[in-house]
Design a protein around this nucleic acid. Sequence first.
DNA 1: AATGAATGAGCGTTCATTCAT
DNA 2: TATGAATGAACGCTCATTCAT
Lengths: 209, 209, 209, 209
Amino acid sequence: MLGLVKHGMGKSGKGRRTAQCILEAAAELLIDEGYHSFSLRKVSARAGLTIGNLQYYFPTKDSLIAAMLDETIGEYLKRFEQIRDSTGPDPIEQFKALIEMIIRDLNRKRTTVFFPELWALANHHVHAVDLMDDMYEKYRHVLVEVMRLINPTLSDAQLHRLALFISCSIEGHTMFIGNGKRWTYETENIVAMAAKSFLWLVQSGEVPE
Amino acid sequence: MLGLVKHGMGKSGKGRRTAQCILEAAAELLIDEGYHSFSLRKVSARAGLTIGNLQYYFPTKDSLIAAMLDETIGEYLKRFEQIRDSTGPDPIEQFKALIEMIIRDLNRKRTTVFFPELWALANHHVHAVDLMDDMYEKYRHVLVEVMRLINPTLSDAQLHRLALFISCSIEGHTMFIGNGKRWTYETENIVAMAAKSFLWLVQSGEVPE
Amino acid sequence: MLGLVKHGMGKSGKGRRTAQCILEAAAELLIDEGYHSFSLRKVSARAGLTIGNLQYYFPTKDSLIAAMLDETIGEYLKRFEQIRDSTGPDPIEQFKALIEMIIRDLNRKRTTVFFPELWALANHHVHAVDLMDDMYEKYRHVLVEVMRLINPTLSDAQLHRLALFISCSIEGHTMFIGNGKRWTYETENIVAMAAKSFLWLVQSGEVPE
Amino acid sequence: MLGLVKHGMGKSGKGRRTAQCILEAAAELLIDEGYHSFSLRKVSARAGLTIGNLQYYFPTKDSLIAAMLDETIGEYLKRFEQIRDSTGPDPIEQFKALIEMIIRDLNRKRTTVFFPELWALANHHVHAVDLMDDMYEKYRHVLVEVMRLINPTLSDAQLHRLALFISCSIEGHTMFIGNGKRWTYETENIVAMAAKSFLWLVQSGEVPE
DNA sequence: AATGAATGAGCGTTCATTCAT
DNA sequence: TATGAATGAACGCTCATTCAT
């Protein structure tokens, strides 16, 4: 897929571990300094190896970026599935819990910083666009399934429209109530408003067909 | 204010024009290539002058960035005030019109690209943070005043909370329904859902105190 | 002479004052930052005028450097004549007083910093060489006249040789006992040793013919 | 130590040779053009490599300057120890020989030019100050040991004071009798006067306690 | 006498990339 | 796998200088 590397990378050998270590260093660097000052030299310094060696694993900068986005977004999807699976059987409670947990997750420094970088990247990098689309698709799918249980009269198109609106609305809070941002302390109030207003939308069915 | 330049810059002389031309070239470049590959050389090439001359007007890269953000954000504020003033006397209609116009504005390429860049910038640049805060403050203020007319029982705190939720929710659509993005064609559906759900929030008063 | 400027510079008008102000700013800058980071921009900033205007007075960097050296060295010559004239009638006392005052003068920050800059400059600038030679010539002349009174049996050649040795020896202390240097606190001990040893040389006549 | 470079630099591999070659080119350039017009580009041109490669060895200008001063001053210390070791057993003869050889060394172009540059540098660079202090300390130590043999009644403080006076006096001749300077031809006369007068100081014990 | 505008060269530095070992 | 060496381009920035006004 995206960001694959030309070497076999031993699957379980030392190489595997080194590659992982590079990806972690890269993600950390992106969070700390932004894509704008993301460089292979800095990544290799953080990972404690030479640039030459780093480029054995990721021959170009783009391939590293791609692999790192892959990895990081993969983590978010896993995280999201955990969130989904951790909620109880009542669909309304499930829905509320999902909303709450996603919004609260914005408070992790990683989340706060990573996503705006990703969105900016997606303005100029095709890789990023594809990864983003893929991730949010899966994200919305979960919302769709829960909402279908809450209001079975909604069509697929309506459900997806709703999921789009809800996910966009939540993402938009990142740079305002995220970690270290100005309105961090409003997080719980936002959570409450979001849950109520999104639930109202689902139940009232006020969604264009 | 922020990012101002040390020269008087004649107000109406040749210098004024050159400075303006630089700011336009800079904004264009930011939109086209992103902050990540924003360089003084590229700006000066676009503006058709030597980098020496560019740096006569903006002695450092930061001062140019600051001035450009200032300018661009200033344009958005002006635009926003025009939107507000162009709506009729009925507060509910005013509110709906505001929501609609703001969301539709996300479709301009400039808007679609500029804001994610700004948010990413704000993760690492203090300037950007301040400018952003200032702009959104004014933005929310307009929302607050309209909503107060719709539901006078809401307290100032509730009104501001609502404005925060609404503005965040709208901003979050930028990278999904913006110009050239995947869900552009859903814009009008989103407009409808947003208007209804935000209005419900205002009228029902379901806002934490 | 060296460093003359092409404009008349009014002799006593505003221009005269501005030129003087520039020369002072230039000398200060040389002392503070060294020739290596001496620039017309910094001089004009210190003097509170535009580079354009500065270059009306000193059209090239070299002409400013030359004029500034001229001025500063002129001050040192004046200063030196004052030292000579302030001593009493007894030649031995005069000689000792001269030595003492010259050595103590090394403690002024200006002296400490200026002369090493001048010597380094003289390695690569003809201007500086000429000015230096001229200044030290006059300097040694004073020593010669006093020493002739102390020991009239010395020939002109011997006197000049002595003066050369003495003046060199004194200058060599600049970077060791000068202002802010490591051995500043040894100044008075050095003064004592210098006076005795130089006097011994003069009186013993131990000078190659 | 000071100015060392982060790479192991192979000790005997190609890198070692390249680094040495850079240091030589740098020293040559400093001698030829002075610190004022010392640039990495000129060094790399002299050494026949790209500036990219030069900066692989010396990542900053300061690190190169420091390494070069280190190297050059190291050579002077070695040279000085050779001078000391090449003199016979009689302390008086040793002392005279030292004085003579040090003064005659001022005539090498390298010496004539390098030291004034170093002194000027020391006005604005901490590195240079430390290196200078360290070098002259070792230099004076040799003088102290010889003088102690000549006049055992002198205290340590007196010996050091004398060494300071003598070394300063000698250094001060650099820019007057050095290579290409105006009084080069007086070198041997200066040598004679210096030897006699310094010896008188040591033997007479006319040194402040 | 003074200002503002512009040029073009050079600077130290960072960087992605290549390659031999 | 990993290192060290090298390249060449670009970057932000400072500067001396020129010139029209």
